[in-house]
Write a protein that binds this DNA or RNA. Structure first.
Lengths: 224, 224
DNA sequence: TGAATAGTGTCTTTCAGACAATATGCC
DNA sequence: GGCATATTGTCTGAAAGACACTATTCA
């Protein structure tokens, strides 16, 4: 018979994996912890859920505090609750991930963190807590998710070329794909509409601009 | 400026949607609440996470307490944390779902619940808390998940015929599908192996028995 | 005219979906 | 023989994947 039978009052946090693309590289925002535990280590932005606050609201608040942006694509990822994941005691974290367009936000260290920075997901520092697990899970999820949803809308500008959206997919997947096949596929999903404008002014052939029909979450049917 | 800025110490529960098939109908296990709030109402089995206990362990413990079974397919579903979801105060619940073979468990009311029963998912009583939302989400997830994983292993006996596994899929999906196409597809997934035995002793042609190659979680690749 | 990217079509293979006749064991 | 279920193959249409050349702008 176990002797640890009592319940406890855990603390509950949200942590947010904020993906963005900078210099053709997939990056995430990390903050340097200003307090113990893991003081000085890099960690995912996050914090305690406040009174009267939904989990998604808490995640959106963290996102806003770190990037100044409200209204990006934000999805609950998974809840991590190993008893020893936080040395202060029982802390259960509900992880979210978000996709941000790099030009839409400024990086400013918030009051909680002494420093904030973007890191390429392919060369990260050692992370605090179990944040490496969270990130791994987030990468798996986003790589799958963009195949059958409109989730990438918030990592792109309002209007974009097919070349640009293809770059986003390739950067997230970490592999190249055929241009003709990609265009056929992305258009056949029916998520895009022509913006009726052209991207001009570069020394190359101008490209048609597209936009997402909606920024509301759309999930395409996949059946057996 | 908001005035509810303090954090709080929420309580954390796990709730488990236990799916099974009985009489060719998809059912879930519900317990009648013996205590307030929602005393006398039907609810998903669940309870507080205990000290030193993983979330998945807590879910497995609840599953075991309610059905006597340890080791079924069990997956974290989503975390529900609306501030008003529990009238007692802030309670965040991490929902799990499980698939059980009906013959492997007995229904016994546990100490927490005055009564436990299976209900068809198509004719449920009114549920306590936000458990209807949880169930809806679980149904969506399981209907998708069985298309590219071996999740159904624990709702089937060790060895089963292709007819039996087709029945399971049809019951979970709530629709019929062509026998020849189903067999082609399920075998092409590569998750099954012939058990080398036949299901005999019925007044009909004997059927080959199959088994899952593994009960470890397998997720098939789906790429663009 | 050269650099850079946009834009486009065909063929092959694979997979999904529609569709029906024969086989086997047991009563 | 009759009942009940098992087992099997073909055709068609859609989508995936391989593959290469021409078009346009601007420096």
């Amino acid at each position: 018979m176990k002797y640890l039978k009592e319940t406890e009052n855990p603390k509950v946090t949200v942590d947010v994996v904020i993906f963005t693309i900078e210099g053709a590289v997939l990056k995430i925002l990390l903050v340097k912890r200003g307090l113990e535990p893991f003081k000085g280590a890099w960690a995912l932005p996050g914090g305690f859920v406040k009174k009267g606050e939904n989990l998604a609201e808490a995640a959106a608040r963290e996102l806003k505090e770190e990037t100044g942006v409200y209204g990006a694509y934000l999805e609950q990822l998974y809840t991590f609750g190993a008893p020893s994941r936080d040395p202060r005691g029982r802390v259960i974290t509900v992880a979210y991930f978000a996709l941000m367009h790099r030009k839409k936000f400024k990086i400013e260290a918030s009051s909680d963190a002494s420093e904030a920075n973007l890191f390429s997901v392919s060369s990260l520092p050692k992370l605090a807590f179990d944040h490496e697990d969270i990130l791994e899970y987030a990468l798996m999820r986003i790589r799958n998710k963009i195949q059958y949803t409109n989730a990438v809308w918030s990592i792109l500008p309002e209007n974009f070329t097919l070349g640009e959206i293809q770059n986003v997919y390739e950067i997230i997947w970490g592999r190249k794909t055929d241009k003709r096949n990609f265009r056929k596929k992305i258009l056949s999903l029916g998520l895009l509409k022509p913006a009726g404008k052209m991207k001009k002014g570069f020394r190359q052939r101008p490209a048609k601009l597209y936009a997402f029909k909606t920024k509301k979450y759309v999930e395409l049917k996949r059946f057996f």
